[in-house]
């Protein structure tokens, strides 16, 4: 574990806590894409299967359990909780996220490290996570004024993978033959998708004005 990876995990944890705070306390999911939340639940479900087959550390296991629990809880709140679901703007959250799942799965069948059930699912989860934020970014462009909590949620979610990139660079230079092309490229694509959002987020923060993404 290095400081970059810890910062990344804490940023990821914080982003989810922000979203849970928003949904649980003000019982609102306005501006949040259910499709992105469903994609993330699928990402964690296909990536963290190894909590049943192996043990790496208490930290690793606890974080995986939290990510699994929180992602499915958020999806449940947005689909079935009768107060929260009313604030979900269904007609704006129209990104066809099913069109992301199949290509990622096919790509995982073609490009992977080992052709085993767990490895292909794990690779699928990496590709899917890279694009999972797309429905949320599209929704942010449509909902004119983004509320602060949602903006911060997306920012820390993007920041987590950016820290991971620093972590991979650090590990590349400090560990023998440490390389993970598939993980690295997926992580770079994922972070690149946030570039535009980061620009407008920092700009709104510096001008202390509301976050607005151009349509």
């Amino acid at each position: 574990m290095n400081i970059f990876r810890l910062a990344g995990d804490m940023s990821h944890l914080f982003s989810i806590l922000l979203l849970l705070l928003k949904i649980h306390t003000i019982k609102s999911c306005a501006g949040v894409s259910l499709k992105t939340q469903e994609l993330y639940a699928l990402v964690f479900a296909t990536r963290y299967l190894d909590i049943f087959t192996g043990y790496i550390s208490l930290y690793n296991t606890l974080m995986k359990m939290f990510f699994l629990w929180s992602s499915f809880t958020i999806v449940w709140y947005m689909r079935y909780h009768n107060v929260v679901r009313r604030s979900y703007d269904k007609d704006q959250d129209t990104f066809r996220h099913y069109f992301l799942i199949l290509p990622c799965f096919i790509l995982a069948l073609l490009v992977h490290e080992k052709f085993t059930f767990l490895e292909v699912l794990w690779t699928f989860s990496l590709y899917l996570e890279a694009v999972a934020i797309l429905p949320q970014l599209v929704l942010l462009q449509r909902t004119r004024n983004v509320d602060n909590l949602t903006g911060h949620y997306v920012f820390f979610l993007g920041a987590y993978r950016s820290f991971y990139i620093l972590n991979w660079i650090y590990r590349y230079f400090t560990e023998q033959n440490y390389y993970k092309w598939i993980t690295w490229i997926s992580g770079l694509v994922q972070t690149a998708l946030y570039a535009d959002f980061f620009y407008y987020y920092v700009k709104s923060w510096r001008n202390s004005e509301r976050l607005q993404l151009p349509a």
Binding site: R5, D9, H12, D50, I56, S57, N60, M63, K64, F67, W122, Y164, N167, R171, T174, E175, N177, Y178, Y179, K180, T183
Partner: peptide, 10 residues
């Protein structure tokens, strides 16, 4: 450090 194989990252 953990070997290249193990998936020690989240």
């Amino acid at each position: 450090e953990v070997s290249h194989e193990a998936k020690d990252e989240l």
